[in-house]
Write a protein that binds this DNA or RNA. Structure first.
Lengths: 68, 68
DNA sequence: GTGTAAATAACATTATAGTGTGATTTATGA
DNA sequence: TCATAAATCACACTATAATGTTATTTACAC
């Protein structure tokens, strides 16, 4: 529930690139289980996992001061 | 080494707001140890920890497609 | 509708993040 | 210089992320 947002961003990007969970997991060096849960907003992924996925997906993780 | 970037962003923001590690940890509901390691680029923080900190610091975590 | 691949799911095990405690070191202000 | 607070660090314990295996369900091409 908490991380649906990030999970969907990853899923959308994966679909965009037309690769399967299995394939993305393999390319990123993480397990399908971890990816599957992440995409569904379950679990609490580590920064390492997010970074690995971001790299393969051509994405970047940013931490910025919120603008009003 | 891996996560120096995020760690520094958090440390800088904390300094900006003039609060101590102890205080920020308390406000965020995480331990000082976890925060301390994160700021130093050690460890591998979970998304939950990053989100808790981001909220207190008035920041947001974004995952975006990299632009060239 | 049958066969195949992809996604969803449960579960036990292993690796490790997160915590609490206490000690040491580094600022910092009186 | 002395006292106090903040930051750094080690370490053992607990909670849980990540994995591997297997099974089930869903989607999709033929």
């Amino acid at each position: 529930m908490l991380f649906t947002h990030l999970g969907e961003a990853i899923k959308d990007r994966r679909k965009e690139l037309n690769i399967t969970q299995h394939h993305l997991a393999e390319l990123s060096g993480i397990s399908v289980n971890t990816l599957y849960k992440l995409e569904r907003g379950q679990g609490n992924p580590s920064l390492e996992v997010l970074n690995k996925l971001a790299e393969v997906l051509g994405m970047e993780l940013k931490l910025e001061v919120k603008k009003n």
